[in-house]
Design a protein around this nucleic acid. Structure first.
Lengths: 118, 118
DNA sequence: ACCATAGGTAGGGGACTTCCTACGCGTCAA
DNA sequence: TTGACGCGTAGGAAGTCCCCTACCTATGGT
């Protein structure tokens, strides 16, 4: 997967951002980050929804590459896989100077003279 | 809006990530970033879809705070508003050491001894 | 006044999301 | 081996997303 078509990349990024566009799934990631790998039931205890619904959220996270599972007996230990988040940061990077300039209050400068350094 | 309830914050983040979970909308942001503020038709020229559909994408971006519009005659000039992306970066930050460690190949260390520094 | 241009809104169709309950499969314990 | 436990999947209901065509308002040119 050294090179991907632009469509594949779009699909991956759609999937990644969509996976993050849900408070339950973001909370799962936070739990795995703060408390380490856990089985499904331990995660499910933190939410009001039924366990099968959480299973579906875990599937979305798995397909986005944000978690992995390891089978241990009858449990499945879920673990945070942060690598895709590095792609989010990469995507974010070209925008960084825009919000930094805005915060400094001189944000209109570049708006007036575009595409000179694009 | 110094403080918001956890639910409001969840809703805002849902909305923000959902706005980014679409290749057309990410491309709109890129165009505004690389070419500066533009009217709707100039943006629409880059896409295969009909203009009303693009208008709806612009509405999603507006409601996420990612673009602003300025009325100039019968045109509406859309402009990138990058500030919400700073919140994405803030959200990302606590995960950063996880992918950095993973890239260095020593990623299993913390997985074994969790919550000691959370 | 008239018409063309710029762009938003209404309403509808098809696909997808997010929850649910019911159920199936594999594993551990008696 | 029988049962309970851990977890995924099937299927369905309600809502949302993303595209379309039709239509509306507002501005500018003649």
């Amino acid at each position: 997967m050294v090179t991907r078509s632009a469509r594949d990349q779009d699909r991956d990024q759609d999937q990644l951002f969509a996976a993050l566009a849900n408070a339950t799934r973001r909370e799962v990631l936070r739990l795995l980050r703060d408390r380490g790998p856990q089985p499904v039931q331990a995660l499910a205890d933190h939410f009001a929804m039924r366990r099968p619904s959480l299973s579906e959220h875990l599937k979305v996270l798995r397909e986005a590459g944000l978690v992995s599972e390891e089978r241990r007996g009858r449990q499945r230990i879920y673990r945070l896989e942060a690598a895709p988040l590095a792609e989010v940061q990469d995507w974010l990077h070209p925008y960084e100077r825009f919000w930094r300039e805005k915060l400094k209050g001189l944000g209109d400068l570049l708006d007036r003279m575009p595409e000179d350094e694009a």
